[in-house]
Nucleic acid binder design. Structure first.
Lengths: 164, 164
DNA sequence: GTCAGTGCAAACTTTTTGCAACTAC
DNA sequence: GTAGTTGCAAAAAGTTTGCACTGAC
């Protein structure tokens, strides 16, 4: 059963509290505000986006340094995962989220998620030596349908122009 | 049949030449020196490493700007692929190389390659909508056996100390 | 001879760090 | 009260860009 968004936000708060306690970190308002903002988002975000969003939408001012610090805690607490497409690091919430894979268009840079349980099953059941996997990322690169169409159109135009 | 290293270096040179011709780029000594250095390497490298290596080992001085420019051409020519573990972008040759996957230790950062044909087969035969895949990257994150052992040792020491 | 490509340095972007002020405990 | 956190600004690290010079065509 997929829990609704409000319950998830409560649950991750509790998990984070336990994590902070266990590691002797303080429960600051900044940390909870950041966690909550992240769990109000869908999909990927980078630090700059989060920074702007917190100030504008949540009306909560935090420094970039605190964002970077807190993200590290959230990564360690397994509440957020990190991706590195494009130029800046991207993050996404990962608690109670369906496992998904990524399509990345090498032409326009667009990132699309998709779910494929067979794929997921095979990857999760792959054992390599004594390596103890906690999570994984699968990125598939290629040309998205939109760019494909645009390219075909360009081709056709070129051909027509050369005929004139 | 896997071709030996010297033939591969000749082949990629030809492929690159065709690529350059097709796209109206010039055949400069820098470009060939960079390609050749990359194909003399095994595994991953970043721009800084390549820069140092070319100067020290190959005795060929190129600017970082040229390295960045040339890498883009090599990416487009499908002779190199790009990874983004850690802080700087990592690259590797990809012509005539066995497809492999990556284990990344979240504790020490070490990256290990492994080959698994079943995994490869399943991923390569996954079709998602109209997306036209050219290549993919699978990164599995976790604790490598070395760190695992180190952690256990630390644990044991702690327990023994608390007994005293 | 021309213009793409190169080297260099400056600019830019993202992330990290040092430090004074603050606050959770 | 004290030490972990925060914000700020400076620094670092990686990459891109502008420009004068060079050399592939």
């Amino acid at each position: 059963m997929m829990t609704d968004n409000q319950s998830v936000r409560e649950e991750v708060k509790q998990i984070f509290t336990e994590y902070l306690k266990k590691h002797g970190h303080r429960k600051t308002p900044e940390r909870y505000a950041i966690l909550d903002t992240i769990y109000s988002l869908d999909g990927h975000f980078d630090i700059e986006t989060l920074y702007t969003l917190m100030e504008e939408k949540e009306n909560f001012r935090v420094s970039r340094a605190t964002l970077y610090n807190t993200i590290i805690l959230l990564l360690n607490a397994n509440l957020v995962i990190k991706h590195q497409f494009g130029t800046s690091s991207q993050y996404e919430k990962c608690y109670n989220r369906e496992t998904h894979h990524h399509l990345i268009c090498t032409q326009c840079g667009k990132v699309t998620e998709f779910v494929n349980e067979e794929l997921q099953h095979v990857i999760e059941h792959t054992r390599v030596g004594r390596f103890n996997m906690s999570h994984y990322s699968l990125y598939m690169y290629g040309i998205c349908s939109r760019c494909e169409r645009a390219n075909k159109r360009k081709m056709t135009n070129k051909l027509q122009n050369s005929k004139k």
